[in-house]
Nucleic acid binder design. Structure first.
Lengths: 340, 340
DNA sequence: TTGAAAGCGCTAACAA
DNA sequence: TTGTTAGCGCTTTCAA
């Protein structure tokens, strides 16, 4: 506000300016900036460093990217970063990428295939060095990346996919251990609140639920399909409460949905876990702070993110694509009937 | 798994290939790709388009960035994207950026100044076209951006800052209306659970609390400073419960902390709102799904994000920096004592 | 140990 | 309406 005139946009200082100032060639500046590929005499190096400092020189990443054919950027596409699960995942990925010197381009598909494809194209055009994709479908079209020779890894996958690395957990086993725990609490009527996907593919957690039920010789409890969102869980909870033969326990396919279910239960005066026990899936921090706290199947997100990034730009890069499966762990809290 | 040999990394197709294929010059390809700056005969254009399609040509963004001196990227630095508030903010920013054709580089400072500065440097080197910063301090050092001529806007600011655009709400007014509401419910002993910042700056919400108390002729209730996190709120809640003269109402500086406070209250058997009324701040989706639902001061995040992006790359770009202040709105739910 | 120079893919001024 | 070409800032080969 004090100065009236906009300062003239002085041209950025380039490696050439530094070279001139230090009295060396531009090549030498490169050598010291990149610590190679040639050695530089200590005295010369000192001069260059000093020039860099004085001129406040900053290498132009775009020029480097053009020359090298690599951008030091990774793209991440998630359905919705404000879903706590994906928020946590994004954080883990950002951290893993950062550790390797990569920066993260974040894009939301908002659960639509259209946006997902648009972002895929966009990332391809920007020549990111790899893409991490939590797709809305099981078998996304990656041709845009392929024709640009950009490696990708599918997040949130529960089984191998052809020609591409995948990272995920054994959802079926996860569902099974959740329901087994409920069985062990003595429940005989165990329902399932399951998320829906765009392509309407089957979710292995449903199989896991069936597995545990079958093993215990139990009949199938009510099965509700609702979106992966608080609202979805809330709707499911209301239907559960209103239903004729209400189950005594329910397995919910995500923490966020469980939060919605609980709200409906609270509103209806149904006590958790006394009247209705709950186990959910994700193990997000939120689960610890609901009332009562949610028993949940936890995913090792940090490890998964690190594996995904490594598959793209780590030592594994050269390896043929493979499926990385991670173990899940049941975090026992109050909603299942355990504890005080 | 089926093919043994890695396919030879065929060189990417460039504008030159397209030109050759279409039998035109590279300039013409540019003209059609960018729809200008020169006109191209319809027939020629069709040939070029066809060539682009056939060769699956994708312009190299790095080359364009180098030539144009603009990257079509915006950087966003937040303390922690998995905090629901920042997750939502990030989503809003991504959307606003996307609408203008910009892609978003996301970075977490994890609440530390060190990381914040590192990311600032990094973004500067990458020549992003603008930076949105939710800093951990009031007066961040933006010199790295300045020397690269990169505009920035400060998110989460409650007052103008010198030489830079800021976006935020009137925190003091927000705190005031929250507490006034509690006063209207008849409370005489109203506490405050306030977040802490790195630099230990005063938070206007505290002033707002004082304002409302003063206007009602009330004494200050207990004041607790804890981190902006569930855990912080939880700790505060426990102290509140254990304290000698427990307040009958508390204003909490963020939803996430309020979630922690509620957990402590539930554990202690203190009923909300009967024994202790709560009003918090942020108006995040989480607030609607706590039990009871949180009355909260809501921020218009989408509008704020759009304003921030506009200040960077919209029509406002040329304008001198200014403070963009947005209105807050008290969303009344159950935790304050309202409703059924 | 240092330097000269080619060239990454693109844009746009200038020429035709 | 189309083509030629310089040059954005960088890396690195090759020569000195």
């Amino acid at each position: 506000m004090t100065q009236e005139a906009a300062q003239p946009p002085r041209p950025a200082v380039t490696r050439k300016d530094v070279a001139r100032y230090a009295g060396v060639s531009t090549a030498v500046v490169s050598y010291v900036v990149n610590a190679g590929p040639k050695r530089v005499a200590p005295a010369t190096e000192a001069r260059v460093l000093e020039a860099i400092r004085l001129l406040d020189y900053r290498p132009n990443a775009a020029a480097r990217a053009l020359k090298m054919g690599t951008s030091e950027m990774l793209g991440l596409i998630v359905p919705e970063n404000s879903n706590p699960y994906f928020a946590q995942l994004a954080h883990a990925v950002e951290e893993a990428a950062d550790r390797r010197g990569y920066v993260l381009l974040l894009a939301n598909s908002d659960g639509t295939l259209t946006k997902e494809r648009r972002h895929l194209r966009n990332l391809a055009a920007r020549r990111v060095d790899g893409v991490l994709l939590a797709s809305v479908v099981f078998d996304p079209d990656l041709s845009d990346l392929g024709s640009a020779d950009i490696p990708a890894v599918l997040l949130n996958q529960w089984r191998p996919a052809a020609g591409i690395s995948t990272v995920g957990v054994d959802l079926r086993a996860g569902g099974r251990i959740a329901v087994e725990h409920l069985v062990r609490h003595g429940h005989r009527n165990i329902g399932l609140v399951m998320g829906t996907t765009v392509a309407n593919e089957e979710d292995p957690r449903e199989k896991g639920w069936l597995d545990a039920l079958g093993a215990a010789g139990l009949q199938e409890g009510p099965l509700l399909h609702v979106p992966f969102a608080r609202e979805g869980g809330y709707a499911a909870g209301k239907r559960l409460v209103a239903g004729a033969q209400r189950p005594t326990a329910v397995f919910v396919s995500s923490d966020i949905q469980a939060v919605g279910v609980m709200r409906a239960l609270h509103e209806a005066g149904v006590r958790v876990p006394e009247d209705l026990a709950l186990v959910s899936f994700d193990g997000s921090p939120d689960a610890e702070y609901t009332w009562p706290a949610l028993t949940s199947v936890q995913l090792p997100l940090a490890a998964m993110a690190a594996a995904a990034v490594d598959a793209l730009v780590g030592a594994d890069r050269a390896q043929p694509p493979r499926h990385h499966e991670f173990p899940v762990e049941l975090i026992v809290r109050r909603s299942c009937g355990c504890g005080g």
